[in-house]
Structure formats: structure tokens, C-alpha cells
Write a protein that binds this DNA or RNA. Sequence first.
DNA 1: CTCATTGATTATCATTTGATAACAAAATAA
DNA 2: TTATTTTGTTATCAAATGATAATCAATGAG
Lengths: 140, 140
Amino acid sequence: MDQKALFYKIVAFTAAIHRVTHELTKEAKSTKLTPLQYKILEYIAVDQPVTLSQISDCLHISMPNTSRELKKLSTFIEKTENKEDRRKQSIHLSKAGEAMMAVVFQAIETQFRKRIQTVSKEELVEIDHALDVLSDKLFY
Amino acid sequence: MDQKALFYKIVAFTAAIHRVTHELTKEAKSTKLTPLQYKILEYIAVDQPVTLSQISDCLHISMPNTSRELKKLSTFIEKTENKEDRRKQSIHLSKAGEAMMAVVFQAIETQFRKRIQTVSKEELVEIDHALDVLSDKLFY
DNA sequence: CTCATTGATTATCATTTGATAACAAAATAA
DNA sequence: TTATTTTGTTATCAAATGATAATCAATGAG
């Protein structure tokens, strides 16, 4: 296994992913979310409930800026007080946020279905396995 | 194969990749390149020679903005006239650009080697195969 | 040849994002 | 208790990025 070649393949791969996701999340643009706001909402949608500092840490956005963006997203999120530590906030999607992310995800999903139209069931299993392998061993 | 589950896995996967690449390309920050400039240079490095409109198309940056960024990158790139179509430019990395990207890639590679330290040869082959599968069938 | 199209540039403006300082409240350590 | 750390907010400034109009030269279609 030529590690150098593998490395270049990974660079090309990640670049390709960035391009494809850009393509797909363009749909999200119709929601008037900025890319950063979309990223934040996506993170909340997947990991909720989260705290502000979790968002800040994971997405590498400073706390002041995270706070600012969350304020802009106020209609899409809700903050619940954390009983154990009253400094912390439990942030999760509001009804409106859930509804909007559902629409966005639906749009992205539709795009993806187009992509896998021609893919056989066996190949889908292969893709699924490939995702697991890379998630486990490379992009954790 | 549950397509819905697969789709969510893909969303989580691409988000993970974005986070990891963010982590890795932070190294590139020491080069004083902005994220956009890095993206452009990376694209040139991988696909050179390219034209300005290719960069614009592939990275979804308007031509005026691409032109502006390329001007900022002038020390790292060279423009050669295209004999067939004199409107077009053949853009490739300059000596300085090659040198700098080599440093950046080296830094990223080092990070990646850390990640695959504990991975066996068999698993590397598996990773390589997984990259091929996803590149072919999903992120083309 | 004339006209529309393509590839690229310059200038300009608005928006988004990043960075930092100053602050406050809750929690924890001393 | 007091001091320190963690979590979050507000305000402000600078930089990066996006968007658009005007322009130009080369190309290709008619």
C-alpha cells in the first residue's frame, strides 16, 4: 500500500466531498440561511440537545460569534435551562426549525437519490460499508 | 438496505469530513492563506493547468471574485497564454506555489499519518477501496 | 463582415464571518 | 469565604467573501 498515493487520494476525495455538498446544500439557500447558519442548524439537528460551547468547540466558531448566530436563528431553535448547571443551555430545534430542516434534508435527499439511481442493491451495501470504514478509521 | 438510514449516515459522514478537514487545514493557516485562497490553490495543485473559468465553475466562485483572489495569489501561480484560445489562461502553480503547497500537504499528511498509525495494512487496503467506492458512486 | 458569446478584468458595495474586549452569572477550587 | 474557571452575552472593528455593473478582447455563428 503506497501511503503517499493514498494520501493524495484522500485529499482529492475530501475536495470532491466539499464540492458535492456545496452543490447539495445550495438548495438550503432558498431558506435564506447563510452557510454558517446552516452548518450550525445541521449540527444541532444531528446532535441535539447541545450547548452553546459545544457548538463553538465542534464547529470552531468563537463563543461570541456562536452566540450572535444563534440569536439570528432564534425562530429555529429553543433554549432550555439546564437544571444541573444553570450556566449551560440545552439548545434544540424548535417546531419551525424541525420543519425547516426536514425540508432541507428532503431536498438534499432527493439530490442523493438521483445520484444513487443507477446503483444496485449490492453496491448500496458496499457504499454503506465504505462509509462505516472511513468513519471509523479516518474521519472520526 | 434502508435508504433513509443510509442518507442520514451520509449527512453525518460529510459533516464529519468537514470538521476533520477544517482541523487539518488549520495548519495551512500559518501560510496566511484564507480558506478560499487555500481551496483555490488546492484545486490548481490537483488539476493544473486550469483556466480561470474552470476554477470559477468548479468552486462556485464568480469570475470577478476568482480573478480578484488569483491576483492576491500572484506569487503562488503563473499564467501562461493559451495558444488555441487567447482569451483563456493556463494557470498553474509557480515554484513558490509548488513549494508552499508541498509544505501544506506535508503538514496535512503528517496529521493523517497520526490518524492511521494504529491501522493495519489490511485495513489500509480497505480504506483505499472504500475511497474508490464512494468516489465512483456517490461523490463524483 | 457583423453580432452574439465567452473569458477575463476592474471597481464598487453589501453581507458574512472572524477576532477581541468588557462584562455578568453560575460553578468550582482554594 | 474568596478567588478562579466556565458559560454565555453584548458591542465593536476588521477582514473575507458574495454580488453586480461596466468594460474589453478574442472567438464563433450567421
